[in-house]
Amino acid sequence: MKTPVVSVQAVSKWYGQVIGLNDVTVDISSGIIGLLGPNGAGKSTFMKLVAGQLKPSKGTVNVFGQPIWGNSMAYADMGYAPDQDAFYERMTGLEWVTALARLSGLDESAATKAAARALSSVALSDVSGKRIGAYSKGMRQRVKLAQALAHDPRLLLLDEPLAGMDPIGRRRTIKLIREWAQAGKTIVVSSHVLHEIELLTPNILLINNGRILAEGNVHRIRELIDQHPHRVHVRAAAPRVVAQAFLEYPHVISLELEEGAVVVETSRPDEFYTQLTDLAASGSVGLIDEVTSPDDNLQAVFEYLVEQ
């Protein structure tokens, strides 16, 4: 039998009295696996356990057939983009990714080439000489992906990689992640937005309160989530103009203007995200900086699932 790339067996993780993950067993082999759950569900704890940054309180986590905790060798073939927005702000994107590629075992020239290539693949070549501190939220997300990718690992762990990206960056990143999977990488992606996960893969792990609630195809969850209105927070240079454009969409239930942003409630998130991306690409409503989705709609689905 083929050894799974990631094997999590009866793993629990406590933070003092608080349980982060509760008796989770899952094997991940290849392709893209979406880890879906609301904030505080245990997604990041799961990712950190698989990345060897946390030690299981109970159970075992193996990566490439070896326990990951205390096994630094495994990182030669693993790339991890954590959820935290933390960087060496004074370094340029190229310096940072090159330095981390060197730490991954590449020599100076190979590391520089690999870093330039990784930055190019996430469309950051033109700003690679700029300090990370001056990057936008979307650029920061993408440079995090570049550092995870530069040493060409077989396993990629991407914790909320699309959070805060603009629509075009989001579409590009989704395309990239799918290409990496097609190239043979195993990718675990976490998100609290079903729509994002759905665009990446039909294979999901549903997680809530530290437990895996369901594993497998996304369609049933899709049916459930469609029963709940989906809220999207769009930060834009001209929110009133953007809101006016949204008014023409029949699936938009409500609109709320905030300072520098508009909050939309839609009954058809798929359609909305597609239209939003097209709208941003057309440039007719000015710059759209950031799109985020609060997880209250997903939370409602999870509450429903737990009740079942």
């Binding site: 030669a76 991954s104 080439k113 290409e179 190239a183």
Partner: peptide
């Protein structure tokens, strides 16, 4: 995508050449 893959193999080869 194919270019990425070939380039990726270069990175793999470079790492294997240098080792841990």
């Amino acid at each position: 995508g194919a270019q990425e893959s070939v380039d990726g193999q270069d990175a793999h080869a470079a790492r294997n050449r240098v080792g841990r």
